[in-house]
């Protein structure tokens, strides 16, 4: 059975944060998980590769990007949206 988008995103974040999947709280921010700016850019790259999508994100102004990175939950939601939108 294919993993859900949520499970895959959490797995990517967990790997980046060097945490067990079970330790990634949906309400945590990336900062809470110890992921810095380079870790964030690397996570987004991993997400793009895993789902074959393009994530609109500029590290200079994360808040202006359509991609909401405020919490794990918001990232999962944003990826689900992009997957639905970009699947042809």
């Amino acid at each position: 059975m294919a993993e859900s988008v949520k499970d895959q995103v959490i797995a990517i974040i967990a790997e980046q944060a060097v945490l067990e999947v079970g330790d990634v709280n949906m309400d945590a921010t990336l900062e809470d998980l110890g992921i810095d700016s380079l870790g964030l850019v690397e996570s987004i790259f991993a997400i793009e590769e895993a789902f074959d999508i393009s994530v609109p994100f500029n590290a200079n102004d994360p808040s202006a990007s359509e991609f909401d990175i405020s919490t794990v939950k918001s990232i999962v939601g944003a990826v689900e949206g992009l997957v639905a939108q970009q699947k042809t």
């Binding site: 850019v41 987004i44 790259f45 994100f57 500029n58 590290a59 200079n60």
Partner: peptide, 10 residues
Amino acid sequence: KAWEGLRVMS
């Protein structure tokens, strides 16, 4: 392309 990867380009 390499620079794009860092997501710091305008």
